[in-house]
Design a protein around this nucleic acid. Structure first.
Lengths: 167, 167, 167, 167
DNA sequence: TTTT
DNA sequence: TTTT
């Protein structure tokens, strides 16, 4: 049920350990940044060139839990999701926009590279400062409203991944 | 020649007539916005829901010329490109970031819907205020440097499509 | 839940009216052929060239019903599915293999071109020779076993679309 | 320049060492088989299920050389190409059809898994029975015609990868 | 700002 | 067998 197609396919390396938090309804949300690198030769000089693009990827639901458990900084991963731009308020009160790749029920996450990609499988749980993983309300820095939203269309009703990263 | 995959596939409707301009080297750059709409039923209430996502698409080179000539407001189009985030300066001097779908030599543009999608084919050339299309330097509002960039990786060394649109 | 990615994305024109039948469990299966055409210029002579590829697409479940109702000969359609090769017996007793694009729950079908693509919407139901659509057992030319298969992996436990078409 | 989209995206493991041969014009052609595996839980019984699909992938040109040099049995690889069905004669004189994923200039091949995926890089050249790699005419078991074909549309004017594999 |  |  849709008019149009909105699909993103990425293979890249995870920029840092995943950040998982939980919505009031208990659903997990995991954020990562993903680097894809293109390399080519300059047509004029023949010099090798390289450009790395950083992508914000946000997982919802079951994939958020898997991503939070099994991805590490450096993991190579295949991700299939959709583009979504959300609006937020800068400290100066001005509107900012952030474009993310949303990976939920209709999306795909595949860890690549087989054995060794994640040092034998599940990452040791990180220190989370004593907060309970299953009762994560205290992790939320800003008030959360009950989601008015049904599953297939999470409208970014979650805390921003990292307000310091400007895009 | 690349590490990673960075691919976007969109089918949507063009939000306005395309904007074409020309780089100092004569290469065309065309900007459009593209709407993709998802619809679904709310799991709780069963109510039909809808969400439209707007994408900034920028074409380079030959596809920029074709897009500029044949796309109209409302055209349905298939686009295959890659994600790229570019940095720009807000009027307050602060950094802003805009994520675009870049469609160049390695990308694809396909007009959909056959006859009738563009009212019989090529759009009448818009009034461009008397500027020459092939000598477009005067259209540039800001100084342009010579591109240090070879073809496959345009690094957004072009004027912003529309500074008023905040993302 | 998968190791690997198996994805096909097609935009093409439907070669004939869809063929819908029903499995013993009542699930619909719809077959179409889909033409995709590439055109290019011969590098030597500069002559325009063209090649049409025909694809066998098989829809399952809800999408099978929609495809059967709304697609026509000539319709332009976007299809996202996976490759699957099934084995069958030629009249000479030898094994033959047919590769199809399977579009089921995890797949996508999008009609393109808006109004007019299907002459105003739903096609008139074709004459089916007096068989009941919901009790289609008599349409099956060969004995059917109960499907041992759960939804996401239909293993071609359906009658062949058209034994005369050799691939 | 095309009407339609014909795209296949696969991530899988290579089933055997690649087979490279050379066309009369010196261009390389490399064949591999690629396994993609889906796993899911049976809806009725809850039992884990698994299905492996084997794909025939044929690389042309530069990617054929890279694939021939760097892929091994077991390598995990990302492949982007297009579907093509070619006709051939069975020993009984009957027409057979084989569907392949063609990866040429417009396609993509990416080795996955970083270091270790191919045991340190380039595979040792296999024994080729004393034939010269760059003068491969004697490797051809059947007469070859000069290709009447320009680059973007190789029409399978090469020897069959393996006549014993029936699809 | 598009489309159904 | 489709479409432009």
């Amino acid at each position: 049920m849709a008019r149009g197609v909105n699909k993103v396919i990425l293979i890249g390396n995870v920029g840092g350990d995943p950040e998982t938090r939980y919505l009031p309804n208990g659903n997990a949300v995991t954020n990562i940044t993903l680097a894809t690198t293109d390399s080519w030769k300059d047509k004029q000089t023949g010099q090798p060139q390289e450009r790395t693009e950083w992508h914000r990827v946000v997982f919802f639901g079951k994939l958020a839990e898997i991503a939070g458990q099994y991805l590490n900084k450096g993991s190579q991963v295949y991700v299939e999701g959709r583009l979504q731009t959300r609006k937020w308020q800068g400290q100066d009160g001005q509107d900012r926009y952030t474009t993310e790749i949303v990976v939920d029920q209709g999306g795909v996450m595949q860890m690549l590279g087989g054995r060794g990609n994640n040092e034998g499988g599940q990452r040791a749980p990180r220190d989370n400062g004593g907060y309970q993983q299953q009762a994560p309300q205290q992790q939320q820095q800003r008030p959360q409203q009950a989601p008015q939203q049904s599953a297939p269309q999470p409208q970014a009703d979650y805390d921003s991944f990292d307000d310091d990263i400007p895009f």
